[in-house]
Protein backbone atom coordinates (compact mmCIF):
# COMPACT_ATOMS: atom_id res chain seq x y z
CA UNK A 1 0.00 0.00 0.00
CA UNK A 2 1.29 3.43 -0.85
CA UNK A 3 1.66 5.94 1.83
CA UNK A 4 -0.52 8.97 1.53
CA UNK A 5 1.61 12.04 1.63
CA UNK A 6 0.23 14.63 3.96
CA UNK A 7 2.33 17.70 4.23
CA UNK A 8 1.38 19.88 7.10
CA UNK A 9 3.51 22.97 6.97
CA UNK A 10 3.64 25.41 9.85
CA UNK A 11 1.97 27.98 7.65
CA UNK A 12 -1.29 26.09 8.01
CA UNK A 13 -1.65 27.28 11.58
CA UNK A 14 -2.10 30.81 10.30
CA UNK A 15 -5.02 29.96 8.02
CA UNK A 16 -7.82 29.99 10.61
CA UNK A 17 -6.83 33.47 11.66
CA UNK A 18 -6.45 34.59 8.05
CA UNK A 19 -9.99 33.40 7.39
CA UNK A 20 -11.16 35.20 10.51
CA UNK A 21 -9.46 38.42 9.37
CA UNK A 22 -10.97 38.12 5.94
CA UNK A 23 -14.49 37.54 7.28
CA UNK A 24 -14.56 39.98 10.14
CA UNK A 25 -12.18 42.75 9.09
CA UNK A 26 -11.88 42.93 5.33
CA UNK A 27 -15.45 42.03 4.37
CA UNK A 28 -17.08 44.51 6.82
CA UNK A 29 -14.77 47.29 5.56
CA UNK A 30 -15.85 46.58 2.00
CA UNK A 31 -19.50 46.62 3.09
CA UNK A 32 -19.00 49.99 4.79
CA UNK A 33 -17.41 51.32 1.62
CA UNK A 34 -20.29 50.06 -0.52
CA UNK A 35 -22.90 51.47 1.87
CA UNK A 36 -21.26 54.88 1.68
CA UNK A 37 -22.19 55.03 -2.00
CA UNK A 38 -25.74 53.70 -1.67
CA UNK A 39 -28.81 55.91 -1.28
CA UNK A 40 -32.06 55.08 0.50
CA UNK A 41 -33.40 53.48 -2.65
CA UNK A 42 -30.34 51.27 -3.03
CA UNK A 43 -29.00 53.16 -6.03
CA UNK A 44 -25.48 54.47 -6.54
CA UNK A 45 -25.17 58.06 -5.30
CA UNK A 46 -22.82 60.66 -3.85
CA UNK A 47 -25.57 62.17 -1.68
CA UNK A 48 -24.14 60.73 1.51
CA UNK A 49 -20.79 62.41 0.88
CA UNK A 50 -22.51 65.67 -0.03
CA UNK A 51 -24.58 65.56 3.14
CA UNK A 52 -21.55 64.96 5.29
CA UNK A 53 -19.14 67.41 3.68
CA UNK A 54 -21.71 70.21 3.37
CA UNK A 55 -22.20 69.97 7.15
CA UNK A 56 -25.99 69.68 6.63
CA UNK A 57 -26.19 67.18 9.45
CA UNK A 58 -23.53 68.85 11.56
CA UNK A 59 -21.06 66.07 10.76
CA UNK A 60 -18.08 68.36 10.23
CA UNK A 61 -18.78 70.25 13.45
CA UNK A 62 -18.77 66.98 15.35
CA UNK A 63 -15.60 65.87 13.60
CA UNK A 64 -13.89 69.15 14.50
CA UNK A 65 -14.91 68.86 18.15
CA UNK A 66 -13.76 65.25 18.29
CA UNK A 67 -10.37 66.06 16.76
CA UNK A 68 -9.84 68.89 19.23
CA UNK A 69 -10.82 66.74 22.19
CA UNK A 70 -8.60 63.92 20.93
CA UNK A 71 -5.69 66.31 20.47
CA UNK A 72 -6.06 67.89 23.89
CA UNK A 73 -6.45 64.47 25.54
CA UNK A 74 -3.25 63.30 23.87
CA UNK A 75 -1.41 66.44 24.90
CA UNK A 76 -2.50 66.23 28.53
CA UNK A 77 -1.70 62.52 28.61
CA UNK A 78 1.77 63.25 27.23
CA UNK A 79 2.42 66.07 29.68
CA UNK A 80 1.31 63.96 32.64
CA UNK A 81 2.57 60.64 31.29
CA UNK A 82 6.11 61.56 30.30
CA UNK A 83 7.32 62.67 33.76
CA UNK A 84 5.59 59.66 35.30
CA UNK A 85 7.22 57.27 32.85
CA UNK A 86 10.57 59.07 33.26
CA UNK A 87 10.62 58.76 37.02
CA UNK A 88 9.32 55.21 36.94
CA UNK A 89 12.19 54.35 34.63
CA UNK A 90 14.76 56.29 36.62
CA UNK A 91 14.05 54.58 39.92
CA UNK A 92 13.68 51.27 38.23
CA UNK A 93 14.44 48.94 41.14
CA UNK A 94 11.62 50.11 43.38
CA UNK A 95 9.18 51.05 40.67
CA UNK A 96 7.61 47.69 39.80
CA UNK A 97 4.87 48.22 42.30
CA UNK A 98 4.25 51.73 40.93
CA UNK A 99 4.05 50.45 37.37
CA UNK A 100 1.52 47.97 38.64
CA UNK A 101 -0.46 50.79 40.22
CA UNK A 102 -0.64 52.55 36.88
CA UNK A 103 -1.71 49.44 35.03
CA UNK A 104 -4.17 48.33 37.69
CA UNK A 105 -7.11 50.46 36.43
CA UNK A 106 -6.75 48.77 33.04
CA UNK A 107 -7.71 45.47 34.62
CA UNK A 108 -11.11 46.82 35.51
CA UNK A 109 -13.56 46.95 32.62
CA UNK A 110 -13.52 50.35 31.02
CA UNK A 111 -17.30 50.80 31.11
CA UNK A 112 -17.44 49.98 34.81
CA UNK A 113 -14.60 52.44 35.42
CA UNK A 114 -16.39 55.19 33.52
CA UNK A 115 -19.73 54.54 35.21
CA UNK A 116 -18.02 54.70 38.60
CA UNK A 117 -16.36 57.95 37.60
CA UNK A 118 -19.81 59.32 36.82
CA UNK A 119 -21.09 58.15 40.20
CA UNK A 120 -18.20 59.95 41.91
CA UNK A 121 -18.90 63.16 40.00
CA UNK A 122 -22.58 62.95 40.87
CA UNK A 123 -21.78 62.34 44.54
CA UNK A 124 -19.49 65.38 44.55
CA UNK A 125 -22.18 67.44 42.86
CA UNK A 126 -19.93 68.22 39.91
CA UNK A 127 -21.80 69.26 36.79
CA UNK A 128 -21.30 66.89 33.90
CA UNK A 129 -19.85 68.50 30.81
CA UNK A 130 -16.65 69.12 28.89
CA UNK A 131 -14.53 69.05 32.04
CA UNK A 132 -15.78 65.66 33.16
CA UNK A 133 -15.32 64.25 29.65
CA UNK A 134 -11.72 65.45 29.57
CA UNK A 135 -11.13 63.88 32.97
CA UNK A 136 -12.62 60.59 31.81
CA UNK A 137 -10.60 60.61 28.60
CA UNK A 138 -7.29 61.34 30.30
CA UNK A 139 -8.07 58.83 33.06
CA UNK A 140 -8.87 56.12 30.54
CA UNK A 141 -6.08 56.70 28.04
CA UNK A 142 -3.21 57.65 30.35
CA UNK A 143 -2.00 54.04 30.77
CA UNK A 144 -1.77 53.73 26.98
CA UNK A 145 0.60 56.71 27.00
CA UNK A 146 2.66 55.68 30.01
CA UNK A 147 3.28 52.07 29.03
CA UNK A 148 5.07 52.57 25.69
CA UNK A 149 6.98 55.52 27.14
CA UNK A 150 8.06 53.48 30.12
CA UNK A 151 9.22 50.60 27.95
CA UNK A 152 11.32 52.89 25.77
CA UNK A 153 12.77 54.87 28.65
CA UNK A 154 13.78 51.73 30.53
CA UNK A 155 15.54 50.36 27.47
CA UNK A 156 17.71 53.46 27.01
CA UNK A 157 21.32 52.56 27.64
CA UNK A 158 22.34 54.43 30.78
CA UNK A 159 25.86 55.00 29.46
CA UNK A 160 24.50 57.58 26.99
CA UNK A 161 23.27 59.65 29.88
CA UNK A 162 26.51 59.20 31.78
CA UNK A 163 28.43 60.22 28.69
CA UNK A 164 26.35 63.36 28.34
CA UNK A 165 26.93 64.21 31.98
CA UNK A 166 30.64 63.57 31.64
CA UNK A 167 30.77 65.96 28.74
CA UNK A 168 29.39 68.68 30.99
CA UNK A 169 25.68 68.78 30.21
CA UNK A 170 23.45 69.84 33.08
CA UNK A 171 20.38 67.83 34.03
CA UNK A 172 18.03 69.70 31.75
CA UNK A 173 20.33 69.44 28.79
CA UNK A 174 20.69 65.71 29.36
CA UNK A 175 16.93 65.38 29.31
CA UNK A 176 16.43 67.64 26.32
CA UNK A 177 19.29 66.47 24.13
CA UNK A 178 19.74 62.83 25.11
CA UNK A 179 16.75 61.23 26.80
CA UNK A 180 14.03 62.95 24.79
CA UNK A 181 15.41 62.13 21.33
CA UNK A 182 16.14 58.55 22.40
CA UNK A 183 12.57 58.11 23.65
CA UNK A 184 10.97 59.60 20.55
CA UNK A 185 9.75 56.21 19.31
CA UNK A 186 7.96 55.72 22.64
CA UNK A 187 6.33 59.14 22.35
CA UNK A 188 5.19 58.34 18.84
CA UNK A 189 3.59 55.04 19.77
CA UNK A 190 2.10 56.55 22.93
CA UNK A 191 0.56 59.39 20.96
CA UNK A 192 -0.84 56.96 18.38
CA UNK A 193 -2.28 54.69 21.03
CA UNK A 194 -3.97 57.62 22.74
CA UNK A 195 -5.06 59.83 19.88
CA UNK A 196 -6.72 57.22 17.68
CA UNK A 197 -9.07 55.73 20.25
CA UNK A 198 -9.68 59.18 21.74
CA UNK A 199 -11.14 60.63 18.54
CA UNK A 200 -13.49 57.71 18.00
CA UNK A 201 -14.74 57.16 21.54
CA UNK A 202 -18.44 57.35 22.24
CA UNK A 203 -19.06 55.62 25.54
CA UNK A 204 -17.06 58.14 27.60
CA UNK A 205 -18.87 61.15 26.21
CA UNK A 206 -22.20 59.35 26.47
CA UNK A 207 -21.74 58.48 30.13
CA UNK A 208 -19.74 61.43 31.43
CA UNK A 209 -21.84 64.15 29.82
CA UNK A 210 -25.13 62.20 29.78
CA UNK A 211 -24.90 62.33 25.97
CA UNK A 212 -25.04 66.12 26.06
CA UNK A 213 -21.72 66.48 24.29
CA UNK A 214 -22.00 64.72 20.98
CA UNK A 215 -18.77 63.37 19.47
CA UNK A 216 -17.92 61.72 16.19
CA UNK A 217 -18.29 58.25 17.65
CA UNK A 218 -21.70 59.16 19.10
CA UNK A 219 -22.82 60.44 15.73
CA UNK A 220 -21.77 57.27 13.89
CA UNK A 221 -23.44 55.20 16.60
CA UNK A 222 -26.61 57.25 16.16
CA UNK A 223 -26.70 56.68 12.40
CA UNK A 224 -26.22 52.96 12.75
CA UNK A 225 -28.31 52.04 15.74
CA UNK A 226 -30.92 54.72 16.40
CA UNK A 227 -32.04 55.86 12.97
CA UNK A 228 -33.78 54.09 10.14
CA UNK A 229 -32.56 54.13 6.55
CA UNK A 230 -29.41 56.09 7.24
CA UNK A 231 -26.57 53.62 6.96
CA UNK A 232 -25.20 55.73 4.12
CA UNK A 233 -24.11 58.82 6.04
CA UNK A 234 -22.93 56.64 8.93
CA UNK A 235 -20.78 54.69 6.49
CA UNK A 236 -19.30 57.87 5.06
CA UNK A 237 -18.42 58.95 8.58
CA UNK A 238 -16.84 55.59 9.39
CA UNK A 239 -14.92 55.88 6.17
CA UNK A 240 -13.67 59.37 7.08
CA UNK A 241 -12.67 58.04 10.49
CA UNK A 242 -10.71 55.25 8.85
CA UNK A 243 -8.88 57.71 6.63
CA UNK A 244 -7.97 59.87 9.61
CA UNK A 245 -6.61 56.82 11.40
CA UNK A 246 -4.58 55.85 8.34
CA UNK A 247 -3.21 59.40 7.99
CA UNK A 248 -2.29 59.46 11.67
CA UNK A 249 -0.51 56.14 11.35
CA UNK A 250 1.38 57.18 8.22
CA UNK A 251 2.53 60.41 9.91
CA UNK A 252 3.67 58.48 12.94
CA UNK A 253 5.60 55.93 10.90
CA UNK A 254 7.22 58.76 8.92
CA UNK A 255 8.58 60.38 12.06
CA UNK A 256 9.76 57.02 13.26
CA UNK A 257 11.67 56.40 10.04
CA UNK A 258 13.34 59.79 10.22
CA UNK A 259 14.35 58.95 13.73
CA UNK A 260 15.89 55.67 12.59
CA UNK A 261 17.85 57.46 9.91
CA UNK A 262 19.07 60.00 12.43
CA UNK A 263 20.23 57.42 14.90
CA UNK A 264 21.89 55.42 12.15
CA UNK A 265 23.90 58.48 11.19
Amino acid sequence: MRKVKFRFSRKAFAYPYMIFLLLFVVVPLVIVLINAFLGDDGKLTFDNFIEFFSDASGGLTVLGNSLIIGLVTTLICLVIGYPVAYFLAKYHASSKIFVLLFILPMWVNFLIRTLSTKAIFMALDIKLGMGTIMFGMVYNYLPYMILPLHTTLVSIDHSYIEAAEDLGADRFTVLWKTVLPLSLSGIVSGVTMTFIPAISTFAISEILSSSKIFLFGDSINMYFSKATNSLGVGSVMSFVMLIIVIIANVLMSLTEKKEEVKSAL
Binding site: A56, S57, T61, V62, N65, S219, M222
Partner: peptide, 11 residues
Protein backbone atom coordinates in the same frame (compact mmCIF):
# COMPACT_ATOMS: atom_id res chain seq x y z
CA UNK B 1 -31.61 65.44 14.94
CA UNK B 2 -27.91 64.95 14.28
CA UNK B 3 -27.49 68.65 13.55
CA UNK B 4 -29.36 69.64 16.70
CA UNK B 5 -27.28 67.26 18.76
CA UNK B 6 -23.96 68.42 17.33
CA UNK B 7 -24.45 72.18 17.39
CA UNK B 8 -24.18 74.14 20.57
CA UNK B 9 -21.10 72.17 21.60
CA UNK B 10 -17.88 73.97 20.94
CA UNK B 11 -14.54 72.45 21.74
Amino acid sequence: WNKARSTGVNA
